[in-house]
Simulated assay, not measured.
Amino acid sequence: MPEGDTVWRAARGLHTALAGAELTRTDFRVPRFATTDLSGRSVEEVVSRGKHLLIRVAPGPGEGEGWSIHSHLKMEGLWHVYGRGERWRRPAFKARAVLETADKQAVGFELGILRVFPRSGEEEAVGYLGPDLLGPDWDAAEALRRLASVPERPLGLALLDQRNLAGIGNVYRCELCFLAGIHPLTPIQDVPDLERIVDLSKRLLEANKARSRRITTGLAGRDPLWVYNREKRGCLRCGTKVVHELVGDTELELRDLYYCPHCQPALG
């Protein structure tokens, strides 16, 4: 499941492959951008912003500003880098973007969002995001302020809101609540040490950003997670049956929530 660490690694791999190279061909396989052609322009950099990815392309002749290729992996998306002529490891019909240079192909498969716009459009696309846990602009105090601004909101919902702090997905929100010993439906105003949770969020993503497998337990073997997706195996710490619920701000935003009722008792 792509979260901030996954997107950070994807951006790093794409930057290594594309930065400084001229695009010889671009193929955007979504109707709105099907005729957009950025060939002849060079890639300046690839960066992540929370769970969003931005490929920044230099302006062409006579263009006043550069371009941004904006993608979001959602649940199934991923980017692959291939040598020219190398066989793709995913079916071609799942490709949504193909960027070619003289010796590389970057292919985005099953991208949940794919847009191409002038660089000035980045503010509208990602400007609403809170401080990026893996970004150079990380601001713990601002993240804490945003979380605390709606004191009655449950912690488990506030952590998923990318307007508060950018990069936490469903796995991390469940594991963070467990590590803090907090029931995920506890209102923010009743969380005893919110600053510690913000700090732990940063440390967890930093620890995992270069790993191919996400680990919150310190155990790289069979049990890398404490409660997430463990409703049939029990809490890794105490063995209590893990509760699995669907929780969201609205019916359309329901997400899987896992917690241990023993290690994370509800208030009252």
Rank of each mutant, 00 (worst) to 15 (best):
A148H: 06
A148T: 11
V150P: 00
P151A: 07
E152R: 11
E152F: 00
P154H: 07
L155E: 14
L155K: 07
L155D: 13
L155W: 07
L157D: 13
L157Y: 00
L159V: 00
D161A: 03
D161P: 01
D161I: 00
Q162L: 02
Q162C: 02
Q162A: 09
R163V: 01
N164M: 00
A166W: 08
G167D: 14
G167R: 13
I168K: 04
I168T: 02
G169H: 04
G169K: 04
V171T: 13
V171N: 05
V171R: 03
V171C: 02
V171D: 08
Y172E: 13
Y172S: 14
C174F: 02
C174E: 09
E175A: 05
L176S: 11
C177H: 03
F178T: 02
A180E: 09
G181R: 05
H183E: 14
L185H: 05
T186E: 12
T186S: 07
T186A: 06
P187K: 04
P187W: 05
Q189C: 11
P192I: 01
D193I: 02
L194Y: 06
R196I: 00
R196N: 02
V198Q: 12
V198N: 12
R203K: 15
R203D: 15
L204V: 13
A207H: 10
K209I: 01
A210I: 00
A210Q: 08
R211D: 13
S212W: 01
R214M: 15
I215N: 13
T216F: 07
G218S: 11
G218R: 11
